[in-house]
Design a protein around this nucleic acid. Structure first.
Lengths: 197, 197
DNA sequence: ATAATAGTGTCTGTCAGACATTATGCG
DNA sequence: CGCATAATGTCTGACAGACACTATTAT
């Protein structure tokens, strides 16, 4: 599970990791993951992983989706296993038991989880501003241009051209500027506010 | 499994289906599928499905890959199950036990297999001329422009613009025209021959 | 004024779809 | 010639990256 958050108070988008409680790799940091129950749906399993392994309340999980299916023979010392990588967006909530880290400073993780993080980052960067379910779960219904820049930077790893980003936002159906302007940074021109209808 | 063939003598690209031998849906037509063995790799399972369910010799399986992971709750009367859709390209071989049908005339199949066929067709159409492993397995090392048109038509469902297709072929690295021309249809200008280096 | 931040407009290259024109060969 | 098939060249619109210029605010 790639659990993403970018709450109004978060300086950047981060993903949730936690120490493993059991072997293999007990004590080491890893992405939250669960074994798929018999007859369980992927989305259910994703919710279960975020809730039980990261301590995020169920109702703070805003959206989930698929990333890719991994089939590495040596990914797990217990033998070859499949794992279906999923993403989840979590909204503001009171407390959890997870560590939240930006993509740029993800520590070494157990299994092949660093590879999964890297594949997911690429995929999520592609989905940003294109998959509206994903995007809207991250941004909320209203957001400033500054936060749009922050989000793009967090996923792509580099600051986007602000002009091109504006063009991208303007082209999204159902997303409009309110005309309002809000000060976000200490100095500089205040940012425009974008709002989903 | 979406098993594709487009041998030199096939008038169009076709996919292999077979009657199910056991319940559920015994006797009905379906895509070949196997349960993933413990510790088995996806590619191995794909080979096994094509070989055991379609009767295609192992060495005629030229390439395999992933399409998507399906997670429909009602796809199987035995309860919700995951299925990982794969594609395979089979080359010329002596005989098999399968029925080969073009995408345009796929009969009703068991489970949600018609949906899988439709999703796979879209995906494979995107991969054609882009994923060279897939493409080259289908075309062979040498092929005429006429067969390129046939392949594109079979996957996209409509005849491509021959000019645009030529441009596409010319842009593929490692693919060049030999200068040779070969008569394929009864009348008309003979087709150019393209060859992978 | 200067620095920091935000927004506008333009240019360029790439790529795909549409289509007119030319080329080749059979009857 | 008339027809079918194949190949070339051109035009257009969509889109993304790069970048110069303008706008707003704090210090």
């Amino acid at each position: 599970m790639i659990a993403l958050r970018y709450g109004p108070d978060d300086p950047t988008a981060t993903l949730g990791i936690a120490a493993r409680r059991w072997d293999p790799f007990a004590g080491e940091l890893a992405l939250p993951g669960v074994l798929l129950g018999l007859g369980e749906r992927l989305a259910e399993a994703a919710h279960r992983a975020v809730h039980t392994k990261l301590g995020v309340p169920e109702d703070a999980i805003l959206a989930v989706g698929q990333v890719a299916t991994f089939d590495e023979p040596n990914r797990d010392p217990r033998g070859p296993t499949l794992s279906i990588a999923m993403w989840a967006v979590v909204g503001p909530h009171d407390s959890d038991t997870a560590t939240w880290v930006p993509f740029d400073t993800v520590p070494p993780l157990a299994f092949d989880h660093n590879q999964i993080v890297s594949a997911a980052r690429t995929r999520l960067a592609e989905m940003l501003w294109k998959d509206l379910t994903f995007t809207r779960a991250l941004t909320g219904d209203q957001f400033t241009a500054t936060r749009a820049v922050g989000l793009t930077t967090a996923l792509h790893g580099a600051k986007p051209d602000p002009g091109n980003l504006n063009r991208t936002l303007a082209a999204i159906p159902g997303l409009d500027r309110t005309g309002e302007r809000v000060r976000v940074k200490a100095t500089g021109r205040p940012a425009a506010v974008w709002s989903f209808t």
